[in-house]
Amino acid sequence: MPDAFTTRILHITTGTDETVTDLTHACETFLQESAAGRDGLLNVFVPHATAGIAVIETGAGSDDDLLAALRTLLPADNRWLHRHGTPGHGRDHVLPALVPPHATLPVIAGRLELGTWQSVCLVDTNISNTHRDVRLSFYG
């Protein structure tokens, strides 16, 4: 019988632009290897103070709309008290309050139970940190 708890760390290169990175395929691959057809929960966690996890539609402009909305809500200017790094970097530290650093998702019969247009995404507005770790954990 497979372990009731399995975890893996993904190493993601996000580059020097604000980005929404689709992790759905990596989550599905992890579940194929660890869930073995069981029901359970997938936890997706990014252990960084300036990134988050979102469940959104991608590829039809929603990912760009999310980044545009975040630019409106969290402008990259000098209003932020947290001022190290690139100009406006303080906003990146506020991001996880709006896009949390985690998501817990249902797994049914070893498959991620998402809606038709939903994807699991890493949201990263910190252009100074080009590498992120994302922990996938299955409990079932």
Results as ranks from 00 to 15, higher is better:
Arg71Leu: 10
Leu98Ile: 11
Ala26Glu: 15
Phe5Tyr: 12
His82Glu: 08
Val46His: 03
Gly40Thr: 08
Gln118Trp: 01
Leu74Pro: 06
Gly15His: 13
Thr6Glu: 12
Thr50Ala: 14
Arg111Ala: 12
Arg71Trp: 11
Ile53Arg: 01
Arg135Thr: 00
Glu57Trp: 05
Phe138Ile: 00
Val123Cys: 06
Glu113Tyr: 00
Asn129Cys: 04
His48Ser: 11
Ala49Ser: 14
Arg111Val: 00
Asp39Thr: 10
Val44His: 04
Val44Arg: 03
Ala97Thr: 13
Ala49Tyr: 07
Leu74Thr: 03
Ala36Leu: 14
Thr13Glu: 15
Pro2Thr: 07
Val134Leu: 01
Leu31Gly: 01
Ala49Thr: 14
Asp3Pro: 02
Pro2Asn: 03
Arg132Met: 00
Thr125Met: 07
Ile12Tyr: 03
Thr72Asn: 12
Thr29Leu: 14
Arg79Ile: 08
Gly40Ile: 07
Asp77Asn: 14
Pro87Asp: 09
Arg132Ser: 01
Thr6Pro: 00
Thr125Asn: 06
Asp3Met: 09
Ala109Asn: 13
Ala51Met: 05
Leu105Gln: 08
Arg111Met: 02
Phe138Glu: 00
Val99Thr: 05
Pro87Gly: 04
Pro47Asn: 10
Thr19Arg: 13
Leu95Gln: 05
Ala103Phe: 02
Arg38Pro: 12
Leu23His: 08
Gly115Asn: 02
Arg83Glu: 11
Gln118Thr: 00
Ser34His: 14
Ala26His: 14
His89Arg: 12
Ala49Cys: 12
Thr50Asn: 10
Thr72Ser: 14
Ala76Glu: 15
Pro101Lys: 02
Trp117Arg: 07
Ile56Phe: 13
Val44Trp: 02
Asn126Arg: 02
Arg8Tyr: 12
Thr19Leu: 00
Tyr139Lys: 05
Gly88Met: 14
Asn129Ser: 08
Gly61Val: 11
Trp117Tyr: 13
Leu95Pro: 07
Thr130Cys: 12
Gly90Val: 05
Arg132Asp: 01
Ala49Val: 07
Thr16Gly: 10
His131Phe: 01
Gly40Tyr: 06
Gln32Ser: 15
Asn78Gly: 15
Ile12Glu: 11
Leu122Asp: 02
Ser62Ile: 06
Pro96Asn: 04
Ile108Tyr: 05
Gly90Leu: 05
Asp133Glu: 14
Leu42Lys: 03
Ile12Thr: 07
Ser62Cys: 13
Gly59Cys: 10
Phe45His: 11
Val20Pro: 00
Ile53Gln: 01
His25Pro: 01
Gly90Lys: 06
Arg83Val: 11
Arg71Glu: 13
Leu114Thr: 01
Val107Ser: 03
Gly115Tyr: 03
Ala26Leu: 13
Gly110Lys: 06
Leu73Ala: 13
Gly110Thr: 03
Val99Ile: 15
Leu136Arg: 03
Glu18Ala: 13
Gly90Ile: 06
Ala26Ile: 05
Ile56Lys: 13
Trp80Pro: 03
Thr104His: 05
Val123Thr: 08
Ala103Ser: 15
Leu122His: 06
Phe138His: 00
Asn129Thr: 01
Ala35Gly: 10
Arg79Lys: 12
Ile56Leu: 15
Asp39Arg: 09
